[in-house]
């Protein structure tokens, strides 16, 4: 696969990098476009780098910078000692652009997220790519079987009595590390937006929202940032409603998000999945989410009921709560 010269370089580099973890190595190399993910894998598999799956929390941009310099000088040293001149400028020469793309997929329950992912990933697999899925849900998720059936590795996270989107945020970096370790080309997260208010979409990470034509024509107005802040809106179940309803529905989706790409995809027969997979291939690569920002804040769940209160009545309402005004419109 690699030229002999390249291999030697990789081994040389990996010696110097012995002290850092796998996640860190990825981080340094990928932010500086040093070399491809696959090459990094081979460095690590050569056993010279200590693999710490979770990455190191104390890893700062300062240390990243230090490692970058170490890498550059390794390359320099190796280059000077060899008469093979394939490496001119490490930054450019080694750039391969093969690394993992993270895509967040959200949408109300049963809108067709899993069906769409299955079809899209199959298209990506046909193109020789590997993808994994992390599914976030509240109480129950039966997706594992469906994904495993077509060889898609999947991790399921159940948030229990937490809002699944809050749960998402606190777990996504670890999820990302899992994906990087597995060597996926694409990592999808599937999360069911249950409160219509939270959204897992992250800045710089391709955000897909899946909604279906059966939800009623008012739904696009009711869904918050999950729909409004998405880059791609996928509309499913077009095969069972009239053309007219599709047109009105899409018109309303457009009003809720003027700039997203609108795609009609059929979750059952996969019509439109190829086209969607083409769009997904244009996603940017994600190396780390440390310091990344959500596209929209998640509401504070700070009332007494968040904390398990079950009794109704003013006495029990503590914290961040809001009262409706029932007398306002009486004139």
């Amino acid at each position: 696969m690699y030229s002999f010269a390249r291999k030697r370089f990789l081994i040389a580099a990996s010696f110097l990098l012995k002290s850092i973890s796998y996640g860190e190595l990825l981080y340094v190399c990928q932010i500086y476009n040093m070399f491809s993910y696959i090459e990094l894998r081979s460095i690590c598999l050569s056993g010279t780098v200590n693999i710490l799956p979770k990455g190191n929390k104390n890893y700062t941009s300062h240390t990243a910078n230090k490692h970058k310099h170490q890498l550059f000088s390794t390359i320099q040293v190796w280059h000077n000692n060899s008469n093979i001149s394939i490496i001119k400028s490490p930054g450019n020469q080694l750039k391969q652009g093969v690394s993992m793309k993270l895509i967040t997929v959200s949408g109300p329950p049963s809108s067709g997220k899993t069906s769409i992912l299955l079809k899209v990933i199959r298209e990506l697999q046909r193109g020789g790519k590997q993808a994994g899925v992390i599914k976030f849900d509240c109480l129950y998720a039966n997706e594992a079987e469906q994904f495993n059936k077509i060889n898609i590795p999947v991790k399921i996270g159940l948030s229990g009595n937490l809002c699944p989107d809050h749960f998402f945020v606190s777990n996504i970096q670890d999820g990302l590390n899992w994906g990087l370790e597995e060597g996926f080309d694409y990592l999808f997260t599937e999360s069911a937006g249950l409160c219509n208010r939270c959204s897992p979409h992250i800045k710089q990470v391709l955000a897909v929202c899946v909604i279906d034509n059966l939800m009623g024509l008012d739904t696009p107005r009711k869904i918050g940032p999950m729909l409004r802040m998405a880059d791609i809106v996928v509309i499913t179940k077009s095969d069972i409603v009239s053309q007219a309803e599709r047109e009105v529905f899409a018109f309303r989706v457009r009003q809720a998000n003027a700039k997203a790409k609108l795609m009609f995809v059929n979750g059952i027969n996969g019509q439109g999945a190829y086209e969607l997979s083409m769009l997904i291939q244009q996603a940017t690569e994600t190396v780390t989410l440390e310091e990344a920002k959500l596209r929209f804040s998640m509401p504070a769940t700070l009332c007494s009921y968040c904390l398990g209160e079950t009794k109704i009545g003013t006495d029990y309402q503590v914290g961040n709560f809001k009262k409706m005004n029932f007398s306002e419109d009486k004139k």
Partner: peptide, 21 residues
């Protein structure tokens, strides 16, 4: 224009389609 509603090229009519609203 692929993503523009006003320029969707194809309208479809099939057996399984029903009014649902």
């Amino acid at each position: 224009l692929r993503f523009s509603l006003e320029h969707k090229l194809v309208a479809q009519l099939s057996q399984n389609m029903n009014f649902v609203i």
